[in-house]
Each structure stands twice: as C-alpha cells, then as structure tokens.
Simulated assay, not measured.
Amino acid sequence: MTHLADTPRALQHLLTLEHLPRIQLIDLLDRAQHFADGHDDRQALAGTAICTLFFEPSTRTRLSFQLAAQRLGADVLNFDVSTSSTRKGETARDTLKTIEAMGVRGFIVRHQDDGAVAALAEAANPGTALVNAGDGRSAHPTQGLLDMLTLRQAKGDDFSRLKVLIVGDVLHSRVARSDLHALRALGTGEIRVCGPQTLLPDDATLDGCSVGHDLDAALDGVDAVMMLRLQRERMDDGLIASLDDYHRDYGLTAARLGRAAADAVVLHPGPINRGIEITDEVADGPQSLVLRQVGNGVAARMAVLEALLSGNR
C-alpha cells in the first residue's frame, strides 16, 4: 500500500503544506537548494506574467517573491491595494479575475482573512496558479519551506535526529502552522512548543508536540529554536499581562540560549520585536540564522513558482 506521504501529485496551487506528500516537500527543498547555490534560470518563466496580490503589508515576502519571479524570467506586476479599485469597493475575486483577463497566469496572494486565498483559487481559471503568501492565521507555506531549507542547511537532511522548539504566539501564527506541517512531514524527532496558555491553540494544531509553559525547561538540549513574532495586531486585549512580563517569561536571551545544545541555531520569521521575543545579542549573534532565512526565501519561492508555472507540474 502506498502512503500519501510517499505519493507526489501535480501541483496547481500552493495553499498550504498540510497533507503535502513528503517526497514532494523534499523535491521542493532540493530545487530550492539548487537555486540557493546560485543557479538561476532566466528562461524558466520567460513570457509568463505573475502578479503579487497583497491585501496586507509585507516587506520580506513581497520583495523575495518579486525577485524570485524576476530571476526565473517572469514579467512581474505589483498590486498596490492602497491605489487600486478595492478602495472603490471591488471584491478580491473581481480584482483577481480582472488581472487574470489581462493574461496573468500566476498570483501570489496575501490576505488578512482565513481561507481567502483558497476561495480565490476556486475562482481562478484552469492553468492559473495561486501561491498563498499568508492568509489570516491559517498558513504561510513558502515561509515553512524556507524555514525547513534553512534548518536543513544547518543540521543536515535527517530531521529524525533533531529536537526543535517553537516559542511564542502560536495561536495567531500562520508561520507556526506551516512549520509544524513541514516538521511533521520531514519526520522531526521531537517537536516542542512553548508559550503562554493564552497564546496556544486548543485544536489539532499541536498534535504530536510536547507542549509546555516554562521556556527554560523547554530549551534544554534543543537543536533549533524557532521564535515567533508577538502578533499584537491580531491579538485581543488581556492575552498577555504586559510586554515586559512576556519578555521576562518568553524572551530569548543569550543566557537562556545557553540551555540549548551548544550548536543550536535560532530562527525568526520577522519582523522582529527586539527586546520582546528576542534580544539584540541573540538576533545578531553567531547562532542566529535570521538573515539566512531571508536569503533562502528567494530560493524557496523560485522553486515554488517554477513547480507551478514552468509546465513541469
């Protein structure tokens, strides 16, 4: 019997890493590493038009997708919600269909609502590909890919040997959900999650994880620490007592990092709230892979765009 995790399938869209077969995830990571090694293919998407359709602000994700598409030879349109017809009441669906009618085949979509990108994918024409660049608190699949690429570069291909800790605001984090899907698919030996009870989901998100609220204990011997941004813009009042209290209990300092394995690495999806979830000493220190994550974002997104739009699905 063939297991789902071993069965590749043609990708029309990339909306989530949940249920993505392990072999397909590894293929994307291998191709991303190829691009990270400096191999561009300016002809892969020559003549293909791609639109970055962002209904939420972004720096790293938008720019890295734009650069990824350009390195593959695509024509890139950047949609600016502040100057678009959405300000006049046009729906996201109508916006997509209007741009699609101009011959655009690829859409990179960020939206504040859960499920919004999947709904747009349902409305798209056959042959049009959508990439979820982050929707609500649901998923951010390319962030999950670039995080796994960064971790694999630092620790090798065998995730079964790794103890990985995710810290902070999992409740509101689409990044955490995509990272957890990918870590499970890659067979990570131990996944720990730590944060205030008020910022941890009570659904299936944390299935299979070791969950705790004592950061010092959770850090013991881990190989990688994945810090999360405290998402105050999505947060109800009262979920944390104060920013000072949060940093005291869940902020990563150099002293705390000393509890992890000696060669442990630190990741953060950005933007960083310095002095809240992580100190300058750690964010800019020798164990930090934060800037490598940013660089790997271009390579991971090149791999996804190539897979969806080059005709080699």
Rank of each mutant, 00 (worst) to 15 (best):
A74F: 02
D202K: 12
G136L: 11
S58F: 02
A129K: 14
R137D: 06
G251F: 01
P21R: 03
P21G: 11
L180N: 00
L183W: 02
L149R: 05
G195K: 01
D216H: 09
P57K: 15
E277C: 08
L151M: 13
N273T: 04
S242C: 15
E281F: 11
A255Q: 13
E190R: 03
L186P: 00
R71N: 05
Q293F: 05
G156Y: 06
G258A: 12
Q43D: 15
G156H: 04
L186F: 00
D203F: 06
N78C: 11
E277A: 07
D223S: 07
C209E: 01
D75G: 09
H39R: 15
D216V: 04
M226S: 05
D249H: 15
S178K: 01
A133Q: 04
A218R: 03
R71V: 01
I272E: 03
M226A: 02
R9V: 15
L291P: 04
V222N: 09
D280A: 14
R87P: 00
D202F: 03
L45N: 06
Q24Y: 02
R274P: 12
A241L: 12
D203E: 06
D80W: 04
Q231N: 03
G168E: 07
M235N: 10
T16I: 14
R234Y: 11
V109K: 13
V104N: 07
L53D: 03
A46I: 01
A119F: 10
T95K: 08
V109G: 03
D113W: 13
A123Y: 14
A261K: 10
G115P: 09
A129C: 15
H140R: 03
A204G: 09
P286T: 04
V117G: 11
R42W: 14
R274I: 10
R301T: 11
E233Y: 11
M226W: 01
R301D: 08
D245K: 14
N132F: 05
G208S: 05
L145A: 10
I99K: 09
F65K: 14
A119D: 01
A307K: 02
V175M: 01
S138V: 05
K97S: 04
A204W: 00
P286I: 02
F107L: 12
T52C: 06
V222F: 10
H3Y: 15
A101E: 04
A69C: 02
L180R: 02
D169R: 09
F55C: 13
D284T: 03
L215S: 12
A44Y: 02
L53N: 03
